[in-house]
Nucleic acid binder design. Sequence first.
DNA 1: TCTGGGGTCCTAGGACCC
DNA 2: TCTGGGGTCCTAGGACCC
Length: 427
Amino acid sequence: MFALVDGNNFYASCERVFNPALRDKPIVVLSSNDGIVIARSNEAKALGIKMGTPTFEIKDLIAKQKVLAFSSNFALYGDMSQRMMRIFRDFTPDIEVYSIDEAFLDFSGFKNMDLKQTGIDLRKKVLKYIGIPVSVGFASSKTLAKVANRIAKKFMKNGVALIDTPDKIERALKMTPIDDVWGIGRRYSHFLQKHGVKTAWDFTRLSDSFIRKNMSVNGLRTKEELLGISCIPMAYHPEPRKAIRTARTFAQTKSTYDEVAEAVSGFAADCARKLREQGSVANLVTVFVRTNRFDKKNPYYANNFTLQVNATSSSIDLIKAAKAALKIIFKEGVLYKKAGVMVSGLIPEKHRQLSLFDDQNVEKHRRLMQTIDRLNNREGFKVVRFAAEGDFALLQAAKRHPASSKTICWYNAKQYQSYVYVLRNEE
DNA sequence: TCTGGGGTCCTAGGACCC
DNA sequence: TCTGGGGTCCTAGGACCC
């Protein structure tokens, strides 16, 4: 049996942990630039605020209903997540951290265990030590555990649901809308509903050949899993990433090469840092840019370019390559709204082939990056950064500064300015 | 005025090999 | 009239997840 455990309204719950006065109040957490809603407390959901709603659309509602809006603070959520996972490990060592707020727990080694009680204990313990309410769903496959988790969250007072007999499977699937099934996204759920499939149960009545033809092997796997046959194995140890990317939407559009290049340099430096964290080097650097998708007045422009680099995780190398790639796709007179950098062709640093004419800088860069990482880990995010990153990096740093985590920001550049000032004083 | 960020996997088609 | 069989690798596009 597997359990799927996840934090309810995770980001919103994290904010509450540090401010109990927020209990029972409607809360939303906003994306970077406070652009859209990325998390809601139950009270905010009850007000009809949907996931992904642009903040400006609910501005009045927020004011009228006294909704508390938070800029996201991923450093905080990441930390809370690690603590929550540690509690999960007290119940079984075999866990797969699936996302920031959820994990699969493998209980197959425990015979005759009272799972329901285990779920209740787990929930109690997390609430006591972390302060986050969780839901627990048990079943014999990961997809079915997801179904159980949804039922636990929606219908069970104690936050725990167990699906362990064919009869319970059938009942659970009949009360699960097809678009709530793990692995069925917007596209497929649309397609399936056209074919009369309303619930997860309906889906399991379709023929294998129909599913295989229209939804590839993944669809077939989902069907098996829903019937309780486990096809998706646990991944106890995370695989190293195959691609790493950093991208941002700009609060204000940028139009000069220098402005965009500063942002892109910061993204490249971020990618480099993430590469070093996982001990990989990259062989490819992709830069992409685009204008505002919603802007009807100006022509749309989106482009990307990929350059080869010599197996590196040096911020210096990657910034250089990123700026070169940007130069190729940059057009004058365009209002850029978003840009990003992706590094791929990743290999473990140990496997790096040193070429015959290997750059003597490799060792020098390695030591420099080590020092920079150490300083930034100790002194704070991006205390040391590259001149090429300009002030854009500083603005990003300001957003992550603790001072901003408890502050409601409304499109107010002046507020950011004050954080910038604070940071400069600290440095 | 104002609309997120970061990933993975599968398939089809083209180019190539014997 | 009729035009093989069996592979690999790469890429773009489309689907999905949180």
